[in-house]
Design a protein around this nucleic acid. Structure first.
Length: 274
DNA sequence: ATACTCCCCTGAGAGC
DNA sequence: TGCTCTCAGGGGAGTA
């Protein structure tokens, strides 16, 4: 499941492999992937040249001359760049025909991904990004910002980390890793945290996400990044998906529970509820 | 405002 | 072998 580091890996890969292609035509095989009328999507995008590649949170932003193509991979979305002679498989739902003869293919087994094209404008004005807070790697992210947003909330801290409205880019895997590194039980109400805890969250969020980007992201379950590239950060995960294995700090068994409806891994010894 | 539940989807894995 | 059932999950929508 792509989170911020995996999305960054995809963006970097697309940038390196595609350069600045013009989109000549688009085939859509599953309409629900497109988050607007199909005709509008095609009309706005065909003929545009991709100028710049970046992301905000888990959203991919492909900046063209007049429009921005905004994509969310959700659970299993991925891109492939292939020659048009290679047969399309059954999970390919959108094909962008490029002027260099290659195709950018959007592949998504679960069909949860979404994409939308919007007129180029300030990031804060895109409908697709309306609900997103500060990027988790934004240099302006600090403990005071999180404290202001969360200190009066009784929501479990893991729920806060997953909520994209205040800080965006963190998903289920990294939320577990961040809680572990901060010695916080994922169920701890945000209101019980000290400013020191919030400083820890900022520090470890940055450390873990940047480390994951350096490893090319995490490959877990069915998620692999585009072009068959496989991330290696799963080798560095401390608790996520490690139920019944020993905690790397204290040796006690890691347990799996459910927090805000999400499978959650923690060390009950190292992460006590406050 | 906050907290649920459901929905979108498919494949993997368990149980029989 | 093959069937049915359950589960996984990001985020939006709808409801209490």
């Amino acid at each position: 499941m792509p989170e911020l580091p995996e999305v960054q890996t995809v963006v970097s890969t697309l940038q390196n492999q595609l350069n600045h292609p013009t989109i000549q035509d688009i085939d859509i095989y599953w309409d629900n992937i497109i988050n607007q009328p199909i005709d509008e999507f095609k009309k706005m995008l065909i003929g545009e040249t991709i100028k710049n590649y970046r992301r905000k949170g888990k959203y991919i932003l492909l900046e063209c001359e007049h429009v921005m193509l905004i994509i969310h991979l959700r659970m299993e979305g991925k891109f492939y760049i292939l020659d048009s002679s290679i047969p399309k498989d059954k999970h390919t739902h959108v094909v962008f025909h490029l002027d260099d003869g290659r195709e950018l293919r959007y592949h998504d087994v679960r069909k949860f991904g979404k994409m939308r094209v919007e007129i180029l404008r300030d990031d804060s004005e895109y409908i697709s990004l309306k609900e997103t807070g500060m990027d988790a790697l934004d240099e302006n992210l600090n403990a005071v910002y999180l404290y202001d947003a969360w200190h009066d909330k009784n929501t479990p801290i893991k729920g806060c980390l997953l909520d994209q409205h205040i800080i965006c880019g963190i998903g289920n895997i990294y939320a577990d890793e961040i809680c572990f590194s901060c010695n916080l039980h994922p169920c701890t109400p945000a209101s019980h945290l000290t400013i020191h805890d919030y400083e820890n969250i900022v520090y470890h969020t940055r450390r873990i996400l940047e480390g994951a980007i350096r490893s090319g992201g995490t490959t877990i379950r069915s998620y692999t990044s585009s072009l068959g590239v496989t991330g290696l950060f799963q080798l560095k995960l401390k608790v996520h998906q490690k139920a019944n294995e020993p905690c790397p700090i204290c040796g006690n068994k890691i347990m799996k529970i459910k927090v805000v409806q999400r499978g959650t891994y923690l060390c009950p010894q190292c992460q006590k509820i406050k």
